[in-house]
Design a protein around this nucleic acid. Sequence first.
DNA 1: GAGCACTGC
Length: 722
Amino acid sequence: MPEEAGFPPAKRFRPGAGPPRRAGSCPPGRRVVMLLAAGGGGGGGGRRQQPPLAQPSASPYPEAVELQRRSLPIFQARGQLLAQLRNLDSAVLLGETGSGKTTQIPQYLYEGGIGRQAVIAVTQPRRVAAISLATRVSDEKRTELGKLVGYTVRFDDVTSEDTKIKFLTDGMLLREAISDSLLRKYSCVILDEAHERTIHTDVLFGVVKAAQKRRKELGKLPLKVIVMSATMDVDLFSQYFSGAPVLYLEGRQHPIQIFYTKQPQHDYLHAALVSVFQIHQEAPCSQDILVFLTGQEEIEAMSKTCRDIAKHLPDGCPSMLALPLYASLPYAQQLRVFQGAPKGCRKVIISTNIAETSITITGIKYVVDTGMVKAKKYNPEFVHVMSKALTRAILPPDSGLEVLAVQRVSKTQAWQRTGRAGREDSGVCYRLYTEDEFEKFEKMTVPEIQRCNLTSVTLQLLAMKVPDVLTFDFMSKPSPDHIQAAIAQLELLGALENKDGQLTLTPIGRKMAAFPLEPKFAKTILLSPKFHCTEEILTIISLLSVDSVLYNPPSRRDEVQAVRKKFISSEGDHITLLNIYRAFKNTGRNKDWCKENFVNSKNMMLVAEVRSQLRDICFKMSMPIVSSRGDTESVRRCLAHSLFVSTAELQPDGSYATTDTHQPVAIHPSSVLFHCKPACVVYTELLCTNKCYMRDLCVVDAEWLYEAAPDFFRRKLRASRS
DNA sequence: GAGCACTGC
């Protein structure tokens, strides 16, 4: 078995999160300032030194913290860096993992007086990172968290009037930009982890660039912009900010050996299994393995197979602890990957791409990369259908753009995975594809902004009074069709009006933008007073906007079904969820109740938090908040009026088709209506995997839909034809 | 008739 994967001799290189650096790897013409030639040894100081799942902890020895700060390689470049940054409007900072850039640069800027007049903002794609970085930096400054150094994430604002260095999520800064598009609070915005190209960071690029320009024109305090990236391809960033210089910082990474397969592998799961046991039989048992697969089902199956095989290994072979890791895994089980394996036992972590960026596990010596990932994809066929539909002024289902599919990773992603093996010591990465195959991988992951539904982003840009969304200065422009589809959606929701050829928000549209929700959900809430069911709708929308509160362990299916029976409503999933939330509330938000009823208590607590945030927003808008008091029909009517674009009807042959494009769809197996055949439903989401599945369904009356949008439904509903 | 990568406001 072990030799099947067939690995040729290793290649050595010093990795960052990118390919090996060579002297000539920087294209001519780019201004690169080398700030440091050699990194030091040993750990410490850099970010993500602790697993993001763990609580950030304050160091008990402030002197030690200061000492560690000074021992960072970046410290030697401090003066040079400050001199450079002081004179620049914009800069791109390329820093390898462990260079200490995220914790140190904001402090240098502050100490250098750049943060005196206003706040220095540092954005992060993830909440945990923003929180732990703020904690770390406030420790280093020996101040209380929330004073000089603070953070702002959703539901949690630990800042004060004294705060000069503020860590925040990119989504949070974007939201702030809606009320102040010039970002007047800030003297400097640092966009960290820019290489990840989240949709929020990408929009911020444009927002920050426009604010910088406008502030200059108005003679206001200049806005300094620093883009930080951990990968080599920073040209795009530099070009976008009119040729901003690239400052280079070396980090501390350990060498990693890379093995490719000799032959392409048609079965990557089998190849992964073979590699794991090959390593297992040869390497000392203290060295852990991290395997990248695509999804929950695969990961659970592989974990089981590993356990089964490990039971029957020859004597003298170490034992094995196979641990699955994916986002929907209950928290307690996720924590297991951080615990050390018992003596004489090897930890094998089988993970989705969550271990690529979000979760860092210490002690990984081997990475097994299948080269596959499950991700959202932009489906050109759907776009074709859409543009055809648009020319006929018929509108597509809003989620028709997004398909979740197993696909090849990009080169950047492969390097990121490889880098996970060299965090504490030298490592080894087994790539389950040939070097030729690797060369054919896409260079970079397609930025999220070109793969996702743009309805929310478009609404936000319009709320910031961007003059023209179609010509907005995106660093990587989405296709015009793509933006046009978002505009069409917003028009249908009544959010837009065309004033002298210029798109502006209607009063409803402006209100919609105030909610941290998908526009259609915001619209549902805004419609609810008309149906006297705002309390109920707030609950339903909160439940829909977090991960499922239903916990379904496959091994206890019968139990789950029996327990869940009492909540099920024949009116569909929305009313069923409402019943569950009510029961949860009536038992005083009890965790034991959650456990007994197979409800994910963590997600349920989050629902309560979201609900209270949404309720506050309604309150500030002076919306009447009333309950329909058990009248579920008005709740369903309200859903029908706001989600009328996402409707499907039962066909004579027993299948379903969407009302507007007649696309064949099916009821998702997780729905309470899975075994039922209602004539007409609205759904919350279309999930396109093997089939197009409707998720979260509500039984509605075709007549209500007709009432909601007579023009849209004329000639469309089967009910109105027969 | 049978299934859901990952973030975030």
